[in-house]
Design a protein around this nucleic acid. Sequence first.
DNA 1: ATAATATTTAGATATTTGTCTAAATACCTA
DNA 2: TAGGTATTTAGACAAATATCTAAATATTAT
Lengths: 84, 84
Amino acid sequence: MNYLFKALNDETRRQILELLKEKNMTAGEIADAFNITKPSISHHLDILKRADLVTSEKDGQFITYSINTTILEDVLQWILTLKK
Amino acid sequence: MNYLFKALNDETRRQILELLKEKNMTAGEIADAFNITKPSISHHLDILKRADLVTSEKDGQFITYSINTTILEDVLQWILTLKK
DNA sequence: ATAATATTTAGATATTTGTCTAAATACCTA
DNA sequence: TAGGTATTTAGACAAATATCTAAATATTAT
């Protein structure tokens, strides 16, 4: 839960998730969408991965990232029980 | 949105919200529930307040805090659009 | 008025975090 | 095998954050 909220607590990471919602992208494509260096994006992707919010798959020279929305169910549940 | 995620990105603050979900509490009562000094709790309450996640009301010498769940709707929506 | 209680504000400090540059690793192609 | 491209790892640094102690503010009660 901690990892999840930590991962979501950054505008860049939230935008990465919004991008990945539209389509899978390679690390380079993701980096190109931001005004941040590739190593920094790589770090953000690592945090998203540790939180299980994205998965990655090696495609030869490229690494393609996909969003994993199932883990968001946990956040949803936490918020919903707070609301009830 | 940033303020919201920031406020939620702390275990103590999330626990405060869980406490306030059960009943309204004074700052002192909230502080007593944690192994953290009162000034630190006061600071957490301030952050929750800025994020509009809690409201406060002066009751003479005491300040009573209440949870405001309506603002959580924003987080819910953000997550739901990510899932759909 | 004075003392006690409740809470916040101010200021300091250690830790975490986001970012960068430089270097390493991995893969592909000629 | 040599060179180019894609990505990550390592190390450094500034900014943000959570915490603390001490002091300030506000209210109540004697």
